[in-house]
Structure formats: C-alpha cells, structure tokens
Design a protein around this nucleic acid. Structure first.
Length: 597
RNA sequence: GGUCUGGUAGCUCAGCUGGAUAGAGCAACAGCCUUCUAAGCUGUGGGUCUCGGGUUCGAAUCCCGACCGGAUCACCA
C-alpha cells in the first residue's frame, strides 16, 4: 500500500487517457501538501499543461476529476495555480497507522546472514594527547553512520587504527623520562591520556626554549629546530624503538597503556565502540612490498636517489612519494598496506574512512594508487569527509590553549543538565542513581545532537557557552517529547486502555493528525536516504520536524480527557508511534532517550 | 597559482535530484501553567538567499563568471 506509487500511476493513466501522451514516473512530482493549503498530497501539474494545451488550473481540474473518480483513497481535491491538492480518506491514514504500529522494527531493515559487509574506520587517535572536540565530531559521525548503515541492512565492522608509534609519542616519553619523576596516573590522580598529554606539552615548552636559546647563539630558526638537543634525543629514541630496544619498548608500552585506559573511559562516556582495533605499530611495515610490486609492474617508478614515486599527472594530480630514498615508508604507503590487510582480514564489500576534510587529497590519491595496484575495490573506497569544528574565536589551537578537551566538555554538559533539571524540579522524587542517569542522557544528548544536526561536510562553529542549550532544536527537546509521550502511555496503561490493537477506521481525524501519520510513514525513506548520503543530519532534522509537529498536536488535544474511546485509542496509538520513531531515530544518532525526565 | 569546498534573518543552521508567499531554533517583544510534564505552546518584528549573467512556464536550488572565506598542493601522520 504505497500511496505515492498509487497516485503516480493514477496520474500517468489520467494524462494518457485525457491527452493521449505517455509520461514517465519521474515527470509526476508528488509532495506533501504544504500546511497552509487544504489537502494531504500534492501533484505538480505544470509538466502536463503543454500536453493539455490548457491553463494550469483547467489541467489540474481535469486530472483531479479523472483520478478522484477512479481512486477510492481520494476523498476530495482542489487546484491552486499549478498544484493539484488531494485529500486522502481518513480510513486510508488509519490503515497506514495500523500497519506501522504492527511493525516492531519500523524504519530499521536490520541485518541478515547474507547481508553485505561495510567496514567503517573512525576515531583513529594519536596516543600522545587526549581527545578533543574535533575527535568528538569524528567519533559521533563514525558511530552514527555505522548504526545507520546497520539499519539499512549492512553488516558493519567498526574499526579504529591507533596511531601508537612515531616521533610524537617519543616526545611525550622523553619528557616524562627527563622531568616526570616517575609520575603515574595513580600517583597523580590524572587520567592516563591527560598525563601523557601533559608531558607532550612539557616537551614542547622545553623544546621551544632550546630553539630560542640556539637562535640567540646565531642559528637560524630552521637550524635550531633541527639541532635542538631534545629533538635529537627524541629521534634517537624513535630509532631505538624501531630497533626493539628493551627499555624504550617497555616505557612505550607503559605509557601507551595509560593512554588506552584514558581513551577507553572517554569512548565509554561518549557511547562509541569498535569491533576491531588496528595498531599502527603492527601495520606500519605493511605496504612496502605492495609498492615494490607496483614498481615492478610499472605502475610506479624509482628515481636515481632510490626513492619510489607514483606519477599521477595523468589523473590531474601531482607526483607522490611512496618510499623514501632510505627505503622507509610514508603515510600513504602504510595506508596502502592497511587497506590490503583489512580486505584480507574481512570479507568487506565497502570500506569507509571517517576522516576530516583536510585529508581529501590523501584519499583521492589512495584510491587511485590502489586501483593502479590492481585491487578491484580501490576505486570504491569511500572517504567520508567532514568539516572542521571551529570555536567562535576561530580554530582550535593547542599552542594557544583554545583546545576544548573531550572529557571536560562532556563533564560540563552533564553538570549543566543536572543543574537545569534540578532548577526545573524535574528530578524531584528520583533516586540519586536515576538523577545521574537522566543528567547524563540529557547532557550528552544535547552535545551529540548539536554536533550531528549539522551537515557533516560543512565546517561548524561550536560555542561552548551557547551550545549548552536545552531549548529549541536540541537533543533534550526531542528527549523531552519522548518522555512526555511515555508518561501519557503509562497513564493509559494504568487505566487499562489497550491501544496496542488495531484501530477502527470509522473516525473523523484532523488534517494535523493525517499530516503526522504521513510524517511518520516517511521515516524509513529518511533512514534510507541518510544511509546513501552518510548523513546523520538528515535524521536529526527529521526528528526535530516530527517532534515539533507532535508538540503542536499535543497542545491541541487532551488525549486522556478525550471522551470518544475510539478516538482516544487512535491518539494513543499515534503518540506511541511517534515515540517509537523518536527512539529508533535517536538510536541511530547514538542518543539515548529517557523514559521520564 | 592549481585542485576541492562553502557564502541563506543579528547569531547557529534547514531547504539545494528546479515548483506555491524562502523555513526553524537562539536572541528581542507580547500572551498561555486548577487540565496527560511550561526543557512546552501561540503571536509580533526581522531576508537584495554574496554579486552579475544564462537556461525555462518557474531558480536559493542547475550552468558560466566575479567577489569573499576555508582546506589542500610535505621525504609529518
């Protein structure tokens, strides 16, 4: 029972009968009738006026008359300018609501044994400092699109490649060794990742001081940066790490261990997780052999200094280094290796990288290189590219101390939610445990929704003060509506009203109600589109529209005071369906919805 | 400079596969709590959809150009 399809076919038939012209389904544009006009569904009739050789109004009238006589769902129609507005029988809407309410997984296609598999890489942190606001956007987007793809029938493997080796972690290690006095997370009370991050900053400060000193002794800035004792020492450490020096390896394992404990806590609080974690220390040597194979096959070439390059000028790009003259690999080489590794480890049908838009070029190149190496999946890699998070003062700069720390931010959101809830008296009569749970759901809901509602590909501004907002187009507004519906449903259950059964369709329902049903019915299509476009924002904005619409409805009717029992059951059923779609939709965004708040 | 990307209300954003009078939220102002949760609802004010051309019945939406902003073009990852 697809309304759009039915009407589309009816219009095609009408045009053929009336004007002896065949039109395709694409030419029949159908949309929800705008609220200010009468009717439920609108057909745009401009495409047919030439065939009819009549005015838009006359054409609309003719088509309207033709299809009303033949389609029982259509109870009335009107024509305004070139728009044919059709009113649909209330019994049709009630049938539709009945159908929706009987589907336990409405809007979520679910995964089956032979579903295709999608691997989604996200998060991918460095182990030298804690997660910040930019990572939050990455993690939320990665988690959300994973959920959305699952709802669209993909098996999803969430993966994280941890950048656990390299000069950056050596810097933290060195600073800790020199200035740390054996400080540990336990002794300092600091979260592991914060402790390691602290020493990264210590290194940077000391390093800068050395540079300054060397410059005063007459070196240029460039020379000073290369020759400062600290950086030389850090490079020595990296070399020792690569040669498996026992002491360095031990320190590295210890400090990374601290970081992982810290990251785990942050991930847990954010509500994200992974199915498979790759560590760069275990994969960074992959890819070299692939590049060498590519050189033999002629896809890449070797220069006189022994470095290996790919010439992409034919693709409108530059030349790209793949192996240094000393034979070591670069970022791109590693990514070639890990891509191959992943396709060996899992039967992947699609690989998605959730990585910021500053790496657009990198992934464009990666895709071409893999293709040149003969991997049939090379071209099909998806770089899910998202924009930067900026602060009102501009970009986050760690040097200027304007980085918004992920843990601090989440804590602040939860705290504010707690205070606001208490001010409003929402938490009266709750146990301490319930209070904490609600504050957590609301605070994090606000943060997640704020970030996910904006188009991923756009840069966004995050105002830490203003974003702690629970009014308007926010997560808490949606959560609140859910809680209120649940409250009504509880009350109905107490009174023993059974609204879970089929609703009779001899009812007079309002246009607002049929509009709501139409909106609910749209949900699966929204989920599908969100999957195709990798856009949690689509779902977020849909949820807001639905909830806003419901709130208006809610204020127009007193469900529990309704005396017509059949109508009361219908409205309860409608409310329950809205709550269901809210819960499912918010779930796709990784946002929990409380039963009460 | 090359490539990519964005420019919609004072602010944050929807709308962009062309359709009706361009929508929300925030902020401002005015109303609504003896009725299922007021984190709500209703109303008012606020727009040269950056600018200029083109395509057509119709353009915020598509095309071309200009202007402004961001990213990137590393033997960093």
């Amino acid at each position: 029972m697809n309304l759009e399809l039915t009407i589309q076919n009816a219009v095609i038939d009408a045009v053929k009968a009336l004007y002896q012209t065949d039109v395709t389904a694409e030419q029949v544009q159908i949309q929800k009738t705008k609220k200010e006009f009468e009717g439920d569904v609108t057909v745009v009739i401009f495409p047919f006026v030439k065939m009819a050789r009549k005015s838009p109004e006359a054409t609309g009238q003719e088509i309207g008359e033709y299809i009303q006589g033949r389609q029982s769902e259509i109870s009335a129609f009107n024509v305004i300018k070139g728009f044919l507005n059709l009113s649909i029988n209330t019994s049709f809407w009630i049938d539709m609501l009945n159908e929706i309410a009987l589907q336990p997984t409405f809007g979520n296609a679910g995964v089956s044994e032979n579903s295709p598999m999608m691997m989604i890489e996200y998060s991918s942190p460095n182990t030298n400092k804690p997660l910040h606001l930019g990572h939050i956007r990455n993690n939320l987007l990665g988690f959300s699109i994973s959920e959305i793809q699952k709802a669209n029938g993909w098996k999803v493997v969430k993966t994280n490649i941890v950048n656990d080796r390299g000069i950056h972690i050596c810097k933290s290690m060195l600073a800790w060794k020199l200035f740390g006095n054996g400080e540990t997370p336990a002794s300092s009370g600091l979260k592991g990742d914060h402790l390691v991050g602290k020493y990264y900053v210590v290194f940077d400060k000391a390093y800068k001081a050395e540079i300054k000193q060397l410059m005063e002794q007459g070196m240029t800035e460039e020379e000073a940066k290369k020759n400062a004792p600290l950086i030389l020492e850090a490079q020595k450490m990296l070399l020792a790490w690569e040669q498996n020096d026992a002491e360095v390896r031990h320190l590295w394992e210890t400090m990374n261990g601290w970081v992982y404990e810290g990251f785990d806590a942050t991930y847990k609080q954010l509500g994200v997780d992974f199915d498979k974690i790759y560590y760069e220390s275990e994969t960074y040597l992959e890819g070299k052999s692939e590049v060498e194979r590519g050189e033999k096959s002629g896809a890449f070439y070797r220069r006189d200094d022994n470095s290996v390059w790919a010439d992409l000028t034919g693709d409108g790009l530059d030349e790209k280094l793949l192996l240094r003259a000393d034979g070591t690999s670069v970022y791109m080489t590693q990514d070639i290796g890990t891509a191959k590794l992943r396709y060996n480890d899992f039967p992947i049908n699609k690989m998605v990288y959730v990585v910021g838009n500053e790496q657009n070029y990198h992934f464009q190149v990666l895709s071409i290189l893999l293709d040149k190496l003969g991997f049939e999946w090379g071209k099909s890699l998806v770089h899910f590219s998202y924009g930067m998070v900026e602060l009102p003062e501009g970009k986050m700069k760690s040097r200027e101390g304007t980085v918004v720390d992920a843990d601090d931010l989440m804590e602040e959101m939860i705290q504010t939610a707690r205070e606001t809830s208490e001010e409003l008296g929402k938490l009266d009569g709750c146990t301490e445990e319930e209070k904490a749970g609600i504050a957590r759901m609301v605070g994090l809901g606000a943060l997640k929704y704020f970030i996910l509602k904006v188009d991923p590909k756009k840069n966004m501004t995050f105002n830490p003060k203003e974003s702690i907002d629970f009014n308007g187009n926010t997560g808490p507004f949606i959560q609140y509506t859910h809680a209120r519906i649940k409250s009504v449903l509880r009350k109905a259950a107490e009174q023993g009203i059974n609204f879970g059964t089929k609703i009779e369709n001899q009812l007079a329902i309002s246009e607002k109600e049929s509009y709501l049903i139409q909106l609910i019915a749209q949900f699966p299509a929204v989920v599908k589109q969100a999957g195709e476009e990798f856009s949690p924002a689509l779902i977020a904005n849909y949820e807001f529209e639905l909830v806003k619409e419901f709130n208006q409805f809610y204020h127009d009717f007193s469900i529990m005071r309704e005396e017509n029992e059949a109508l009361k059951k219908f409205r309860l059923q409608l409310s329950a369906s809205v709550a269901q779609v809210v819960k499912t939709g918010m779930g796709l965004l990784g946002i929990e919805v409380p039963e009460r708040m």
